[in-house]
Simulated scan of single mutants.
Amino acid sequence: MNQKLKTACFITFISLFACNSDKKSKNEQLTPIKEHKVISSKNQFNNYWYSGKAELNSYELKQSRYGEIRDGEVILVFVTEPFSLNKQVKLDNAKEAGSDKVSVMKLNQIRRFTTGIYDYSIINTTFTPIDSRKHPHTLKLNTSIQEWCGQTFTQLNLKENSYLVQQFSYFEADGDTETNLPVTLLEDELMTRIRINNGQLPEGELDLIFSTIYSRFTHNKMKAAKAIISKTTTDTTIQYNIKYLNYKRKVSIDVQKEFPYKILAWTEDDGDGQITEARLKKTINEPYWQLKSNSDEAKRREMQLIK
């Protein structure tokens, strides 16, 4: 399949995905999930996500690293923002941006854990347009990893029919690189897609660019790889299972079955016998960018954060 046809198929899938269609996709590899009985209305979505607050979630973390499980915590910050389509940064003057303005769901994942004497701090940020029909691809993704030996930074920017991938590293084996990847679904955007699209993900075999954190930790180059997404459901949850066909990596994501489709837990299995696991502790909705005073540290205790 040539690149133009691949891109056309993916855009078709996103259009079906955004419209909550129960029709079958013409692309045999991308079969949209059927609608749930409970689907959020546009007003319900807007009232929640455009309320002037962010959704802040804290998770207990069991992180696999260097052959052992480490205790830590994860924070997921979901918030909508006005974004520049051309510059791919948050707009300072959204009212004056005109057609350059696009509303995105931003997800900041802050992951912290300790390995022996030293600690890791990871921030992964994804910018996914709310209007998937008009803007079917995530516009930007970046990941920074800091630990006592050094730091790395990875960024993907959407450039027409490809992602520009820039990687910078303290370590010689990684070096500073720049490359391009064909546009397809990102593992790092699955959670924003779930929140935007009524808890839905595609099912079946598809191309998936695997996680930037996985790429750095395992020293696998960023690339699109074949994966299968399947699901199981209970009365209250949906579990998505992602299995890569040519890599040992498996991921599962547990999702609240009704609006606002919170991420309840997830696991990552890289085939090393150690499984990374995150489980939700607390959710609050706050304009966190305004909570800067010492007295606002009470909100950290409310979120049951360790540090």
Results as ranks from 00 to 15, higher is better:
K42E: 15
R301Q: 15
T218H: 11
D100K: 03
V255K: 06
L156T: 11
Q151N: 11
N43H: 06
K231Y: 04
D176F: 02
T212K: 10
D174H: 07
A18M: 11
S215T: 06
Q167S: 13
G52E: 07
I242L: 01
V77H: 11
T143S: 11
V79R: 14
G72L: 14
S132L: 14
L291N: 08
D174A: 05
I253E: 00
K248S: 12
T31A: 06
N124L: 12
T233M: 02
A224K: 05
F217I: 13
G199T: 07
F153L: 10
K159T: 09
S84L: 08
I145K: 05
Y288W: 03
I229R: 00
E189R: 03
T138C: 10
E302I: 12
S169A: 14
K231S: 01
Q44N: 08
C149E: 15
D71S: 15
R301W: 09
I229D: 02
Y59M: 08
S58K: 06
Q29G: 08
R216A: 07
C149I: 09
K106M: 10
K221C: 04
F171G: 10
K250Y: 02
V74R: 15
E172M: 08
K281C: 00
R301H: 15
S162D: 09
A54I: 06
N57H: 08
D207F: 07
T234Q: 00
L186W: 05
F168H: 14
Y48D: 11
E55R: 07
L280E: 05
I122A: 04
N46L: 14
T179F: 11
N241V: 09
H36F: 09
G67R: 12
I122Q: 13
Y240I: 01
